[in-house]
Design a protein around this nucleic acid. Structure first.
Lengths: 197, 197
DNA sequence: CAGACAAACCTAGGGGCCCTAGGTTTTCGC
DNA sequence: GCGAAAACCTAGGGCCCCTAGGTTTGTCTG
């Protein structure tokens, strides 16, 4: 009988789909095996264990995620870029909740060698902020604040922590608006602040 | 032989401790039974299933959490209150990672009847912002933004998404500082903005 | 104080999941 | 066509969740 043609890569893709259907916790060796019409033991030739399987899903989703954001902010700067970034971020997270959840997990360094996801993510994020003219260490602080806010918003929304969807959309817009104002009024760290303490 | 004296409440407390040691995913019926020197089947007299057990942990942790924050901001207002809120928030999350993780999960409404956790949380949060003089719907938007930012920051920090701990502390301080500025410059929603669209 | 009754706890067992060890079949390069 | 690597399988152990139904413990009551 025809073989399923398993690959670590194909498992990651199927795992990403599964994640959107069943949550990141729902990506499981046995369910994935079931979908490929294969015994669960067969997956262990391509993947060390469940942990690695999930990390591959994370890696795959993170690539998709940052690419869709990069596409959205291409050719934009300043507030335009911020809004595009934010909207693309949220759109992906809402369209692919499981994949997005995957991106929030750590990946072992050894699995990262040879990939550019990390670098792309950093470049895209810092690039989006360029027009605000922040310099280190403010830039890093601002990036952290933005990542935190976006992630926190999506996490709360996904968890049902908010009310009406329409309302959430407007709150999000106003939150992004507020972040724009914040970036323009960013409290600089020049005076009376030690850099390494 | 002496009975263990199990209770839904005692299970929740023990579950909270277990969560800090083994993560929220680590709170498990069998491990908890082991700690009480009891067979796992025995827990099902006090708790419907694993799901309910974890929700009780969530509820317990959420109470602890909001109480420690409320204590921290008592008698403060404006920026003082904001900073106290933020620091208490992060301190609890770092001291009790598992409990904090628990607070981010949903609880079935039926389990909420008779408790005041939700109301206390809302009151404390809105109270903290009172001095900034925001009115609805800006107030709700601001609360959402703050919750998001705080949660996002802790989530990223816990996940190891940041670098050096010292650095994170300073970034956090500056982030809170920035949020204070933001609240003072909050873009009001009076003009040119539809309320229900 | 004895019996009754309701908790509290137990044994037995089914099903699901992860993972290992070692065997069989397919595929592919030579 | 043949040998070897790769793909897949069977068998089985261990852990976990959960149910059904029995036994023990404590408490309440007459």
């Amino acid at each position: 009988m025809a073989r399923a043609g398993l690959t670590a890569e194909r498992l990651a893709v199927a795992g990403a789909e599964l994640a959107d259907e069943a949550g990141f916790d729902g990506v499981t060796v046995s369910e994935l095996a079931r979908r490929f019409g294969v015994k669960d033991a067969s997956l262990y030739s391509h993947v060390k264990n469940l942990r690695e399987l999930r990390q591959r899903v994370t890696l795959y989703a993170a690539g998709e995620f940052i690419d869709s954001i990069a596409a959205a902010i291409a050719g934009r700067a300043g507030k335009d870029a911020l809004v595009a970034f934010a909207d693309a971020y949220r759109a992906y997270a809402l369209a692919h909740p499981g994949r997005y959840a995957a991106t929030q997990h750590q990946v072992d360094p050894e699995l990262l060698v040879g990939t550019t996801v990390l670098a792309r993510t950093v470049d895209t994020t810092y690039g989006m902020l360029r027009a605000y003219g922040l310099t280190e260490p403010d830039l890093t602080d601002a990036v952290r604040l933005l990542r935190s806010t976006f992630h926190g918003y999506i996490a709360l929304e996904a968890e049902g922590g908010f009310g009406h969807p329409r309302e959430v959309q407007r709150s999000w817009d106003r939150g992004v608006q507020a972040l724009h104002v914040l970036l323009e009024h960013w409290p600089r760290s020049e005076e009376g602040e030690k850099d390494d303490d």
